[in-house]
């Protein structure tokens, strides 16, 4: 098993290994090295600027970004049925809720729903386990509070209309919802109680996308000019 524990071996990958500790006269007097360093530093001035003037210029995160978790608001009310799974999955125990009953077909709703943003570590587990797609990660990343009480977000502050979360929902549909085993043909009627599927105009239904086709396209994506 151990291929080379018995005796030490030299395995240098550079061709110049023999001389890497011996300097010639020019290198010993150091002057050329100074100019080499200065030249490299000088060249950096003409590189495109890499930083951003943060508060004035704001970074727009991609759809994959896990920002502040929010509750999805569908037709003026939350999709959440207060099953408590996100609170169970949350590693730092940031979420708390109380279930209550409603006349609506979904039968349950959260009486209160709180996320302590001081505890939240933005891991995205709440989104990953939610059986109703009721809590998703948004793009908000600069969250400030003036007091500790202020950091406990209630339902009012957590609810975001689904229209504003379109990009994230689309991302989830393409990359997170797809089956990775057998492609079963599910009946959408199986889930008539879910608020998620009532809106027929809004395409939230079954996302049996052709995974292989997406992967083919993505893996073949050419290198892009992101950093100039």
């Amino acid at each position: 098993m151990a291929k080379n524990l018995e005796k030490p071996v030299l395995n240098a990958l550079s061709s110049n290994q023999k001389n890497e500790r011996k300097l010639n006269f020019l290198e010993r007097i150091y002057l050329p090295e100074i100019f080499k360093g200065l030249w490299y530093t000088f060249k950096q001035m003409f590189q495109p600027r890499f930083t951003m003037n943060y508060p004035e210029e704001k970074w727009t995160p991609p759809a994959i970004f896990r920002g502040r978790p929010v509750l999805v608001e569908d037709h003026g009310k939350e999709r959440c049925v207060a099953c408590g799974l996100c609170a169970r999955a949350c590693p730092p125990l940031a979420i708390s809720m109380q279930a209550s009953e409603t006349e609506d077909e979904k039968e349950r709703f959260p009486d209160f729903f709180e996320i302590n943003m001081l505890r939240c570590i933005y891991c995205g587990y709440c989104e990953e386990v939610c059986p109703e797609e009721a809590i998703v990660m948004s793009k908000d990343y600069d969250i400030v509070f003036e007091s500790r009480e202020d950091a406990v977000y209630d339902k009012e502050r957590l609810l975001v209309p689904k229209e504003d979360l379109e990009e994230r929902l689309e991302y989830l549909k393409t990359y997170k919802n797809t089956q990775f085993g057998n492609f079963w043909d599910f009946q959408e009627e199986n889930n008539i109680h879910s608020v998620r599927d009532r809106d027929t105009d809004w395409n939230t239904g079954l996302s049996l996308v052709d995974m292989i086709k997406t992967q083919d396209k993505n893996d073949a994506a050419p290198a892009s000019k992101t950093w100039k």
Binding site: I64, Y175, F180, Q215, K217, N218, D219, A221, A223, T226
Partner: peptide, 17 residues
């Protein structure tokens, strides 16, 4: 049992670059 999500097209492009 795996990873959280697949590589997106943006991800593979940026890695290649």
């Amino acid at each position: 049992g795996g990873v959280a999500n697949d590589l997106t097209s943006d991800a593979s492009a940026i890695i290649k670059e």
